[in-house]
Design a protein around this nucleic acid. Sequence first.
DNA 1: CTTAGCTGTTGATAAATGTCAAAAAAATCA
DNA 2: TGATTTTTTTGACATTTATCAACAGCTAAG
Lengths: 190, 190
Amino acid sequence: MTTSVLAETLRKHSKLSESKIAKVVAAYKPFPTKHNQVLVRKGDIAKYLYFVEKGYLRVFVTDASGNQFTRFLIEQGMEGTAFPSFISQNVSSASVQCVGKAEVLRISYDELQKLYRAVPEFERPYRKIIELAYVASIYRIESLISMNARERYIQLLREKPKWVQQLPANVIAEYLGITKETLSRLKSAK
Amino acid sequence: MTTSVLAETLRKHSKLSESKIAKVVAAYKPFPTKHNQVLVRKGDIAKYLYFVEKGYLRVFVTDASGNQFTRFLIEQGMEGTAFPSFISQNVSSASVQCVGKAEVLRISYDELQKLYRAVPEFERPYRKIIELAYVASIYRIESLISMNARERYIQLLREKPKWVQQLPANVIAEYLGITKETLSRLKSAK
DNA sequence: CTTAGCTGTTGATAAATGTCAAAAAAATCA
DNA sequence: TGATTTTTTTGACATTTATCAACAGCTAAG
């Protein structure tokens, strides 16, 4: 039986047989990364979808003054990339980077299309993933338009305590849409 | 040949035959609405997906003090509802309301599932719709975390000038995540 | 056509958050 | 380990945005 976070995740979220799981897992290739390695650079086309076996990836954009803003954090057991670029195969406005050390698998756009043909039942979990990612983004929009910095921080602390523990404060701040100084003050105030 | 905004939209975004288009269109029922009518109330389960033939719908949430925040605006030719509730068939944290007068069609969750079985090629445009909605929400998150109120307003003016012209200022303000006073000042300042 | 209620504007002020600079603390790697 | 770099905290101050209140304009329905 295949053992990997990817295999575990497929068992948990789909009803694929062990042989189909093995096929899917075989299509994702381990991709060795260095500390903070950039996987997709702004201006590139996102050719790969990344599955996180260990650690975190961040998807971020940069403004004219060089400030960085974290669009998404991808944790162990999740997959992602610069999504708009990946589905359209156009250049990406965002970059994707490992947060510190991370272990990832990757599958190319073309290989993924082949996989859909080889394992048609894999389409359903894929669509579910997109739906869930969409729902998550709806709630993120909701908190960004309706809550202030403190409320958003408290919500993150409640819903993703591990992120706050494990990720550098500046990454958390970028994700919340505030500066690292403001986050630091929120922490010390309570 | 069926004539409706829905039929037009299907012709434009899919390769369905006229007979399939007729089937899809037949499954969506006209739903008469009053001025500012609420279609989904917070606490309800979103049982219907709404297609906008004319006007706009807004999806909004309310905070403890009764302030409203517009999560999404749905314009002519688009469809939507309280999406997280619709796909999970759980109670909704958001409400859906007509902005002024609107003409809508609707299809129930169950009828939609039947439609997928009756017209399997309809699944693909549905998935595309979700993917596009997801991409749109990614860009919305991006502007909320990386831009200030003025920048977001200018971007909206550039990308959706009609919304700014046609929708009440307080709805635009809620969509931008700012107060109506701040929006009013942004307008007069330039 | 008129009035009651929304909708939008403006002013004064307060609160939240950002910016810049510097010091302190922590993490990395040679 | 020690040196170097990166991250985090703190302070002073500036800017942005919200809040509250008053008023003006508009609009929909009688």
